[in-house]
Amino acid sequence: MTTIGILGVGGLAALMVRGLQGAGYRLILSPRNAEVAARLAAEYGCEVAADNQAVVDAADGVFVSLPAATGAEELARLTFRPEQPVLSAMAGTGLARLHSVIGPARAAVSMMPGYANALGIGPSILCPDDAFWRPFLAATGPVQVFEDEASFTTAATFGAFSGASFVWMAQAIGWYEEQGLPSATARALVAATLRGNAEVLLSEDRSLPEIQREVITPGGISELLVTTLTARQALQAWDEALTRVLHRIGG
């Protein structure tokens, strides 16, 4: 059985542990967040190591979800084996920086939304392709592989997009609630609509403009909503926000 060591036992690690159940991995957790580590050990059968070095020593591969602000410095204090696979999910820590603190280990970087991965349906991105980490990530959802780090960094903004989508959904659900719909009905309506439309994009071969022409009738209610949002520059604001995220993480 392949042993994965997890450095940084916060929210993302907890969600990944949940999503990896039944995938055949032995998981060893760092004791950094003792309460969370103990809970995961009790609920999912993980092991908790004595310290971070013990995690590295016991692991075939190491998944890093340490805080981005201090994670590289924490990794630099550890000793890795030659070519030991290390996968970082620390936003803003690129391959060069990662390799500089884990050498002679093998570096790869990733990003995932987290919550959806806990359900086995969350997308992940990986750079560069790595035969060790690809099946690990695939156990929690579809994987997109990048060999070009610049493209990976652009794609990594989807982590922020994913989180912000919950705020957008809450806004829509709140509007329906204000109009008198029960909370459960509003939530189900918004969620099912978005899930259905996502399946259209994943299943249909037609281009997005073709789909839009079919679902947005000239003079219809969808066009009214889109033109109102466009006039308020609400759609353009998404571009600005994603660009700011890209700059934050190093693009």
Rank of each mutant, 00 (worst) to 15 (best):
4 I>V: 14
8 G>H: 03
12 L>R: 02
12 L>F: 10
13 A>V: 10
16 M>P: 04
16 M>K: 02
18 R>Q: 15
19 G>R: 01
20 L>Y: 02
23 A>H: 02
23 A>E: 05
27 L>M: 11
29 L>E: 03
37 A>D: 05
39 R>L: 12
40 L>Y: 04
44 Y>W: 15
45 G>A: 12
46 C>K: 05
48 V>Y: 06
49 A>Q: 03
50 A>C: 09
50 A>W: 10
52 N>Q: 05
52 N>G: 03
54 A>T: 12
56 V>F: 09
57 D>S: 15
58 A>G: 09
62 V>K: 00
62 V>C: 04
62 V>R: 03
64 V>Y: 00
65 S>E: 03
67 P>G: 07
72 A>E: 04
78 L>W: 02
78 L>E: 06
82 P>G: 07
84 Q>D: 10
87 L>G: 02
87 L>F: 00
87 L>K: 02
88 S>Y: 05
89 A>P: 00
91 A>I: 04
91 A>W: 01
91 A>G: 05
94 G>A: 05
96 A>Y: 03
99 H>K: 06
101 V>H: 00
101 V>G: 01
102 I>N: 01
102 I>C: 03
103 G>M: 07
104 P>M: 06
109 V>C: 09
110 S>W: 02
110 S>I: 01
114 G>Q: 06
119 L>I: 03
119 L>F: 13
121 I>K: 08
123 P>N: 07
124 S>Y: 00
125 I>A: 09
128 P>R: 00
129 D>I: 00
131 A>I: 05
131 A>S: 13
132 F>K: 01
138 A>D: 04
140 T>S: 06
140 T>C: 11
146 F>E: 00
150 A>K: 13
150 A>I: 13
151 S>W: 14
154 T>S: 13
155 A>L: 15
156 A>H: 04
156 A>L: 08
156 A>T: 08
157 T>G: 03
158 F>C: 06
159 G>C: 08
162 S>K: 04
163 G>Q: 06
164 A>I: 13
164 A>T: 15
168 W>R: 04
170 A>V: 10
170 A>K: 13
170 A>N: 13
171 Q>M: 15
172 A>L: 11
172 A>Q: 09
177 E>F: 06
177 E>D: 09
177 E>I: 10
181 L>E: 06
182 P>Q: 09
184 A>R: 14
185 T>V: 14
185 T>W: 10
187 R>N: 07
189 L>S: 09
190 V>W: 05
191 A>W: 11
191 A>K: 13
195 R>G: 15
196 G>R: 08
197 N>R: 13
197 N>T: 14
198 A>D: 11
200 V>D: 11
200 V>Y: 02
201 L>M: 14
201 L>P: 07
202 L>I: 08
205 D>A: 11
209 P>R: 07
211 I>V: 15
214 E>R: 13
218 P>N: 09
219 G>R: 12
221 I>N: 09
221 I>M: 15
223 E>K: 08
223 E>Y: 09
225 L>A: 15
227 T>I: 02
227 T>C: 15
231 A>V: 01
232 R>Q: 11
232 R>Y: 00
234 A>F: 02
236 Q>S: 11
238 W>C: 14
241 A>D: 05
241 A>Q: 05
242 L>I: 15
244 R>D: 12
246 L>M: 07
246 L>K: 09
247 H>W: 14
247 H>Y: 12
251 G>S: 09
